[in-house]
């Protein structure tokens, strides 16, 4: 070894250029991510700052008064709960059953693949189109009128693809080895599904349902023409009543009631987004909990 030789692992000019590129890429990607998060943070901050002061127990538990320029949001809150619950009752059994069929029973042929594709495409149909379908099918054809029933069924049709896809994915996440083990002990397909596949897919299915709830509670277009009312001083008594809903109420007081105080829409939005975030948080917590318990 001569004294003038470079140390063993000395970098070359290429190395330092690579390092600069590396730094640049990292900064750029980070910036893009920040750009993505920024609006969310700003929206949340704005809602909390502007709408926070409006929120009170009274706001949540009283009716709107003075042409919706004052008072609370109780009918809208209750209405949204009605809409979501009825939509769930309609969509979960159908969605889960369809997913079980598609995942466990349907032969793997072109028809099944076409159905799967159709379901994914259905999830991409704009909600206003679902709204028109709801008016045609539930309000007019089945003569439910504009009612919670019609609005919830419209929401259910809209969210069915989500339920089906998430359920099917969680069913397919259950290892095939479990099914084979059952079949080989002489279990029928249904016994296998009921005793092994469904219990192990339950967490995923529930997560999908919770996500459906969060999506359903925020939708406006599908309920606008099918069951949600501009203003109703009463709480709904049954599924054939019309109802107020959080999402539509927000739209109304933000655009249709000129003399509503500035802070009011922010308050409504804050409650709505809190509902949705709470649902999402619940679903994430649930997922983490169940994943921790899984042993395979």
């Amino acid at each position: 070894m001569t004294g003038t030789a470079a140390p063993l692992f000395a970098g070359t000019s290429l190395n330092s250029r690579d390092r600069k590129v590396e730094w640049l890429v990292r900064v750029l990607l980070g910036l893009m991510t920040a750009l993505l998060i920024l609006p969310v943070v700003i929206i949340m901050a704005l809602l909390v700052v502007e709408g926070g002061p409006v929120i009170s127990w009274e706001f949540l538990t009283t009716r709107p008064v003075d042409g919706m320029t004052a008072g609370g949001i109780l009918p809208a809150l209750v209405g949204t709960v009605w809409l979501v619950v009825v939509a769930l009752i309609a969509s979960v059994p159908v969605g889960v059953a369809a997913a079980v069929y598609l995942s466990e029973y349907a032969p793997d042929n072109w028809l099944t693949r076409a159905i799967n594709l159709a379901i994914i495409n259905l999830a991409g149909v704009p909600s206003i189109v679902h709204a028109l379908f709801g008016v045609g099918a539930f309000v007019l054809f089945f003569r439910f009128g504009t009612s919670i029933l019609a609005a919830s069924l419209t929401l259910a049709v809209m969210t069915l693809p989500v339920v089906i896809v998430s359920t099917r994915e969680s069913l397919q996440a259950v290892p095939r080895a479990f099914r084979e083990a059952c079949w080989n002990m002489g279990a029928t397909r249904w016994q296998t599904i009921r005793r092994i596949v469904l219990p192990n897919a339950l967490s995923g299915i529930l997560t999908g349902i919770i996500l459906e709830v969060s999506r359903t509670s925020g939708e406006t277009a599908p309920i606008m023409f099918t069951g949600a009312a501009f203003f109703l001083p009463f709480l709904p008594q049954g599924v054939l009543d019309q109802t107020m809903a959080m999402s539509l109420h927000l739209f109304v007081i933000a655009t249709q009631v000129p003399d509503a105080p500035e802070a009011l829409p922010f308050g409504v939005a804050l409650v709505l987004i809190s509902m949705v975030l709470a649902m999402n948080a619940l679903s994430i917590a649930f997922r983490v909990y169940v994943r921790g318990r899984k042993k395979w």
Binding site: P175, A177, F178, E180, A181, C182, I196, N200, K294, K295, W296
Partner: peptide
């Protein structure tokens, strides 16, 4: 009996 043990969960 399979290649990989497949006890049920």
């Amino acid at each position: 009996v399979f290649q990989r043990p497949n006890p049920l969960p």
